[in-house]
Simulated assay, not measured.
Amino acid sequence: MEKNSILKQTSKTVTDSSEQILTQLKNGFSKIGDIGTNTKNKFVDYVKDVFDVLPLIENVGFKTNRLIVGISVPPSIEIHFSRFKELNQEETEKLLELYSDRKMFKLIFKALKMSNEFQGKLSSDTLVFSETCIEISIPPKVSIKYLNKDISNLTKIETEFD
């Protein structure tokens, strides 16, 4: 008798939890669908601004590996970068001055510089630095990504044979 009661109670708890999750998902999708035209247009302009500065970011030594646009509340833009060259202080200052009117450039470049400085202080015997990911959202987020050295070497070998 007691097992049946516990089983029924567990089943009810799981069912209630599932219904709660489904309700939250429906509410979340409803909020996304209710985003007004003005808000959508502002976000599209924001994404276009990011697209426009990516070639400038490449000038400072960072290649864009991928860009992910998160259509959510709040919306987000996730950009994955890898560094292919290091600039000296003079070159960095020149580019910051040249693009001083580009807010998005300064935002991304400063995040990449900070990430570079932080990443330079980290090391691992089994992991190798892979890329930096900047998520432009509320709140913004910078991630430093590492790969297992064995996986990294496999990827390089596979790339050489492609």
Results as ranks from 00 to 15, higher is better:
Met1Ser: 14
Met1Arg: 12
Glu2Ser: 09
Glu2Trp: 13
Lys3Gly: 07
Lys3Ile: 13
Lys3Glu: 11
Asn4Ser: 13
Asn4Val: 13
Leu7His: 03
Leu7Lys: 07
Gln9Gly: 08
Gln9Glu: 13
Thr10Val: 10
Thr10Asn: 08
Ser11Cys: 07
Ser11Pro: 00
Thr13Ser: 15
Thr13Met: 06
Thr13Ala: 15
Val14Asp: 00
Val14Gln: 01
Thr15Met: 13
Asp16Asn: 12
Asp16Gln: 14
Asp16Thr: 13
Ser17Phe: 11
Ser18Asn: 09
Glu19Arg: 15
Glu19Phe: 14
Gln20Phe: 14
Gln20Thr: 14
Ile21His: 02
Thr23Ile: 13
Thr23Trp: 15
Thr23Leu: 08
Gln24Ala: 09
Gln24His: 11
Leu25Lys: 06
Phe29Ile: 08
Phe29Leu: 15
Phe29Pro: 08
Ser30Trp: 08
Ser30Cys: 10
Ser30Pro: 06
Asp34Gln: 15
Ile35Gln: 10
Ile35Asp: 08
Thr37Lys: 09
Thr37Ile: 07
Asn38Leu: 13
Lys40Pro: 05
Lys40Cys: 15
Lys40Ile: 04
Phe43Asp: 04
Tyr46Met: 06
Val47Lys: 07
Asp49Trp: 06
Val50Asp: 00
Val50Pro: 02
Asp52Glu: 12
Pro55Ala: 04
Leu56Pro: 06
Leu56Val: 04
Ile57His: 02
Ile57Pro: 03
Val60Lys: 03
Gly61Phe: 03
Thr64Trp: 01
Ile68His: 02
Gly70Thr: 03
Gly70Asp: 10
Val73Phe: 04
Pro74Ala: 03
Pro74Lys: 00
Pro75Gln: 03
Pro75Lys: 05
Ser76Met: 08
Ser76Asp: 02
Glu78Ala: 08
Glu78Ser: 03
Glu78His: 05
Glu78Trp: 05
Ile79His: 05
His80Cys: 02
Phe81Cys: 01
Ser82Tyr: 01
Ser82Lys: 03
Arg83Thr: 05
Lys85Trp: 02
Glu86Pro: 01
Asn88Pro: 01
Thr92Lys: 04
Glu93Met: 05
Leu95Gln: 10
Leu96Asp: 03
Leu96Thr: 09
Leu96Asn: 06
Leu96Val: 09
Glu97Cys: 03
Leu98Phe: 02
Tyr99Met: 09
Tyr99Trp: 12
Ser100Met: 06
Arg102Leu: 12
Lys103Asn: 14
Met104Pro: 11
Ile108Asp: 04
Phe109His: 07
Lys110Asp: 13
Lys110Ile: 11
Lys110Val: 10
Lys110Trp: 12
Ala111Asp: 12
Lys113Gly: 05
Lys113Asp: 06
Met114Ile: 06
Ser115Trp: 03
Asn116His: 10
Gln119Lys: 14
Gly120Asp: 11
Ser123Cys: 07
Ser124Asn: 01
Thr126Met: 01
Thr126Cys: 01
Leu127Cys: 03
Val128Pro: 02
Phe129Leu: 08
Phe129Glu: 05
Thr132Lys: 11
Thr132Phe: 02
Cys133Phe: 05
Ile134Arg: 06
Ile134His: 00
Ile134Asp: 02
Pro139Gly: 06
Pro139Tyr: 00
Pro139Gln: 05
Pro140Gln: 06
Lys141Arg: 11
Val142His: 00
Ile144Phe: 01
Tyr146Gly: 06
Lys149Gln: 01
Asp150Ser: 02
Leu154Ala: 11
Glu158Leu: 13
Thr159Tyr: 08
Phe161Trp: 14
Asp162Val: 07
